[in-house]
């Protein structure tokens, strides 16, 4: 009995720390979109994907960037379920609007802003994050400095808009004032019953850093407009990890 009471106290204390740090607790379940990453729940503070914060994605290669955009698109479909539009800012955009339909997004709900310079992209992102009439702001660029990311974080603290900072092939993986850092890599597609052809998209989702959560590695696929989790089997896990550790 005493143990459970202690646990309760610790839980309450933890939540009050989170509140001080700017994470608002979910008072109404309906307010919070369900990001369908239920198998990752243990990694997040409060057990839910943090919205109203900036998430950083790092893609070292073009293939990773495409996968990360796919993963972001999957998250967007949940975040945009409230009917609000999304701002998609890029410096070198190759995203094809019609391709978003597969992820359950109406592509005309996405407003694309194509800019030439990183600086402009960050300015637009900051403006977008300040406006609570948009659901999400996504920015594809390469370099961001720590102080620039701080400005973005300040903007979302007011408006509670979610931001995705997708850094493609950055020169340096410097620390940013973001709530998390993700790396998404493509994985061999998921095929049912060894059918021929390309199956459903699969990604290795690495959560490198998460404030008040537990980082880790998962495998997710996209099927029937939602994320499906595939447990890391030892057979899959060992070769991938070894390659990375020594390579």
């Amino acid at each position: 009995m005493e143990g459970t009471a202690k646990k309760e106290i610790i839980k309450v204390l933890r939540e009050s720390i989170l509140k001080i740090e700017g994470f608002k607790s979910v008072t109404n379940e309906m307010d919070q979109p369900d990001c369908m990453l239920n198998d990752m729940a243990s990694a997040f503070p409060y057990g839910r994907f943090p919205t109203g914060a900036i998430h950083e994605f790092i893609s070292p290669t073009a293939a990773c960037a495409t996968s990360a955009n796919g993963f972001i698109a999957g998250l967007l479909s949940a975040l945009m379920a409230n009917g609000l539009p999304c701002l998609w800012i890029s410096t070198k955009r190759s995203l094809f609007p019609a391709g978003l339909k597969y992820y359950g997004i109406e592509p005309h709900q996405v407003i694309f802003i194509d800019v030439k310079k990183n600086k402009d992209a960050l300015w637009v992102m900051e403006q977008g994050l300040k406006c609570n009439a948009v659901a999400v702001v996504v920015a594809e660029l390469n370099e961001v400095s720590f102080s620039e990311s701080q400005r973005l974080q300040l903007a979302v603290e007011q408006s509670r808009v979610t931001g995705f900072l997708h850094r493609k092939r950055p020169h340096k993986e410097n620390t940013l004032a973001c709530v998390s850092r993700w790396k998404i890599r493509p994985k061999k597609s998921y095929i049912i019953d060894d059918l021929p052809g390309v199956g459903f998209p699969m990604w290795e989702v690495q959560l490198e850093k998460i404030r008040n959560g537990k980082p880790g590695k998962w495998v997710f696929g996209w099927r029937d407009k939602q994320f499906v989790s595939i447990p890391l089997t030892p057979l899959q896990k060992i070769p991938v990890l070894k390659m990375e550790q020594y390579g």
Binding site: L84, P85, P107, I111, I113, D114, W123, C131, A133
Partner: peptide, 25 residues
């Protein structure tokens, strides 16, 4: 949604970066 707010945001962006930066399909 609040079309007025979105329009104001886009005007703001168009004023700084240019109208031709904004695309919707």
């Amino acid at each position: 949604g609040n079309p007025k707010k979105i329009a104001e945001l886009l005007d703001n962006i168009a004023g700084k970066i240019g109208m031709n930066a904004i695309h919707r399909y």
